[in-house]
């Protein structure tokens, strides 16, 4: 059996959670991993993988998805934090909706496709950030009074659950990403990409690790 190169090992780093949030929502976690990757168009292998994933995802699976443990856990968490999962869909449900609506998972560049594959295969919510902009470790906290986010004209309502690095807000949980932290999906070349997986109560840690691992391996492909 061929040994995997050392850099292949993906060790997701567990992010910090503000104590108030951790007490209110036990099980809320964030795992991140950073990689130097191509960020332009998807490779033919990745597009093929996306196609076969589309073929294996049927309407019957979509209907029964709400009862599956991981998608249900995200729906419940959405309710707990004041989001309506039928209006702002959970990441897996949004992808399934697009799959059923468009007849397949549309390619969104290498990074977008890697996230799609990771989310569909594991059910875990994943997102990507421009790692060159992120400072220090990443975690989840509540926004302060008058705190803003790049690309957003108005400040965030105080107490919004946000993804933040050690200096500032880089995204709203299950919402927009700060403008300068968005990975340019359509640009050619390479860039440092940070993949983040958000776990909630009911989502096992192994699923979170799997999501990060799948996204990283897809980015390497």
């Amino acid at each position: 059996m061929t040994e995997l190169p050392e850099e292949w090992e993906v060790a997701p780093e567990t992010g910090w959670i503000e104590p108030t949030l951790a007490e209110e929502f036990p099980g809320l976690t964030i795992a991140t991993s950073t990689i130097e990757s191509q960020i332009g168009k998807s490779s033919p292998e990745l597009r093929e993988r996306l196609r076969s994933l589309s073929d294996s995802f049927t309407g019957a699976k979509a209907i029964a998805m709400r009862e599956k443990p991981i998608p249900w856990a995200y729906r419940v968490f959405y309710r707990h934090i004041g989001l309506d999962p039928d209006t702002i869909r959970t990441p897996i449900e949004q992808l399934v909706f697009e799959r059923i609506h468009d007849g397949g998972f549309a390619t969104q560049g290498r990074v977008g496709d890697a996230l799609t594959i990771a989310t569909v295969e594991s059910g875990v919510a994943t997102s990507a950030f421009n790692a060159d902009i992120v400072t220090g470790s990443v975690g989840l906290r509540l926004s302060d009074e008058g705190e803003g986010m790049t690309g957003r004209t108005a400040s965030l309502p105080a107490g919004t659950i946000v993804i933040a690095d050690e200096q500032r807000v880089i995204g709203v949980l299950f919402g927009d990403t700060a403008e300068d932290c968005v990975v340019p999906f359509r640009r050619k070349g390479t860039g440092r990409v940070m993949v983040a997986a958000i776990g909630v109560r009911g989502v096992p840690d192994i699923a979170l690790e799997e999501a990060v691992w799948v996204a990283m391996s897809a980015l390497r492909a």
């Binding site: 959405y78 309710r79 004041g82």
Partner: peptide, 20 residues
């Protein structure tokens, strides 16, 4: 099947959770 949200994501109060 729609149930209105509470303009999150944030920590909801007891009243808001009761409404949900």
């Amino acid at each position: 099947f729609g149930v209105a949200g509470m303009s999150g994501p944030r920590v909801l109060t007891v009243d808001e959770l009761e409404r949900v």
